[in-house]
Design a protein around this nucleic acid. Structure first.
Lengths: 220, 220, 220, 220
DNA sequence: AATGAATGAGTTTTCATTCAT
DNA sequence: AATGAATGAAAACTCATTCAT
């Protein structure tokens, strides 16, 4: 009884947290892995940032690699599906859709996911299966999304008839690199270029480059 | 005679190899580090790829970190200066200069340096001083180069008056990301988008976006 | 009740051992270092003698050198303060005090500390700061103690008026050397000169040499 | 011929030095070993101090241990024989002989041999056979010398009848420790006690302690 | 004979993983 | 379930020793 009561006081918190443990660990893991890379990240630090002890991490993940993979999966899975729904259901112009997609992604950059992209790219050599999976489930699906938008935009006469595959790649690059950059060398840029200026210029450049002749004066 | 020659032009093998060792080690180091990251790279493997034993590496570099830094420095220093000279001495149009610069860089991507960029970006968190140095000596200088080209292109009426700083960033991104991508997830792209298509589309998009009104029909 | 006690007086084994670990490691370290010297001592052996694994040593000391220094500090600090108190509070004759001090020290020789002196003396060249510290905190303080005894003995007319500084040195030497010898070549002396004979002769010689004229017949 | 002549210019020096190599190496070895201890001494440094390359050392000594032993043997062997001859041929009083012996030894302390004693004492645990040899060939022989002097001094009525074995030990200690001390912690003594004061006091104390009653006023 | 570049065995040190509490 | 002390495999690093020149 004494034993029970002594832990009863903490029970609500404990019980609530217990369920949240895996998520908390994953969150901490993304942070630390993105900061240091897989090999240089210390499990003890992940545990500390999650507010638990080293041993606890092993109750939820069999080893460091599993935690790493869980972190990548977790962070990545949701967004892309959202994007796919957006495209399917979109009513407006292709240009607006494209702009919408880019803005969505821009919002991701500063978040945890930006660092994650850096991490995956850096560790691709050490985790080939994970890299392959990520490529297929994220990169490829994202790429198809861009292709779809471009294709319909061209069909609707909004965009010039471009090399769709290649253009999808090129358009995605500044976003992708911005994500990586922000979580890496970008920290040493003083004063940093404000995100707004970057994104505004980026959108303008891409859309100016894509816009069909007749559309030209429509937008700046 | 033979005696004299042995210590001169046809220096003894040992001597000749000694002179070449640091470069050989650095070359191997860039490869391995770019592949695995700093922490996961094993010095023994670097040594093996350089065709020497573990101990030999320590004859030329006091420790792993020094080798890492030497590798970064070595690979990076030359190119940027070349670029600066090109810009200074350029006689043709700004568009051609920009195209020339992008082509130059494109040629770097597949080489050792592409992997290096990935490496630096990934390790920025673990080597802040190196990151700061790289940012200043490479990123910043490269950025100024692009700014100069844009500025003169606008002055000459070739380019639209854009936000120079931001545009320089945006323009550089696809190249930078392509470099990283090629040495990472790009390996899982099947079939991979050919470089030529990527670069052609990239150049077109950027130049179409930049070109001043009157220039419009001049080029595809 | 049992629950309470388990976290109190009869602390869990792990906990209890943890508290004892540093001391156990230091004890083993003094042994091994004194036996082999710093460089030749292997940390694995220190750990083994302390009954733990290599890695455990690093839980308590950041590296070999830190363990070495901790060992020296630990062993040395207590005794000298005891000696200082003795001298301050002494009631009897100076001769008796001197004899007491020498006896005290003699008891140290065979113990761990004897080997430690050898160790410090041997490693002075490799650990200059430690040597300086030891000289100041141990050698110098011990020297002042001997000076004090001699000075008061002379003031009381018990001892001849000698060069105090020099005599303090000379008197201490046989003890110091005996300590070193015992833990070194002394092992090859067969049959070894018994400690009692050494100390008896040593005390006699020193006191005979110090004793003032009038005191001469008083003692053998 | 050209080859020969090119080295002919240097020949005299070279030839002369060649013969001296082992001795030069030993000299350097004693220095470095005494400074750092056997394990911490680097063969490269020994070679450098001897003015040759690492490889050359291996032409004369099969390995580090052999060089170490050669160093110990070399330095030690001569002196003790000299001492034995002195004692055999001595004409004067025992006191004068004892004083002569102590003075002889004092002259050794500051020299290379002082450091060597420290070295041997420190390494006794790592080189048992060498320690045994040293004990027998040096320590034991030295001890017998002191015994002989004391014995004849007592026989001649110069010295009090003391425990000869033990007294020989005690008398030797200050010299031995002074030797060790000088090459170790003594460097941190500021201002250092001058050798003259040490030796004068030491001789006085020992002789005052030894001198037979009747002899008392004869000397200070 | 002499050199010093190269080697690799042997240590130190780190940290993912285990397990008694 | 949670902890964190302990482990030991793996990697960095050192340096005696070898050997091509």
């Amino acid at each position: 009884m004494e034993v029970a009561s002594s832990s009863a006081a903490l029970a609500p918190t404990r019980r609530r947290r217990k369920a949240a443990r895996p998520a908390e660990l994953i969150e901490a893991a993304v942070e630390v892995f993105a900061e240091k890379g897989f090999a240089a990240a210390r499990l003890e630090e992940v545990a500390r940032r999650a507010g638990v002890s080293k041993g606890t991490a092993y109750l939820y993940f069999p080893n460091k690699e599993a935690l790493f993979k869980a972190a990548v999966h977790e962070v990545v899975v949701t967004r892309i599906a959202m994007g796919e729904r957006d495209v399917e259901e979109w009513q407006g112009s292709s240009e607006e859709l494209l702009r919408h997609m880019l803005e969505q992604w821009a919002s991701v950059v500063r978040s945890r996911q930006g660092g994650l992209l850096k991490l995956i790219v850096a560790e691709a050599g050490n985790f080939p299966e994970l890299a392959a999976w990520y490529h297929q489930e994220v990169a490829e699906r994202g790429h198809r999304l861009f292709c779809a938008v471009l294709r319909s935009g061209i069909a609707r006469g909004e965009f010039r008839p471009v090399d769709i595959e290649a253009t999808a790649h090129v358009i995605a690059c500044p976003m992708a690199f911005r994500a990586i950059w922000t979580h890496s060398l970008g920290r040493y840029e003083t004063p940093a270029l404000a995100d707004e200026r970057f994104y505004h210029t980026y959108f303008s450049l891409v859309l100016a480059g894509l816009r069909a002749e007749g559309e030209r004066e429509a937008r700046t």
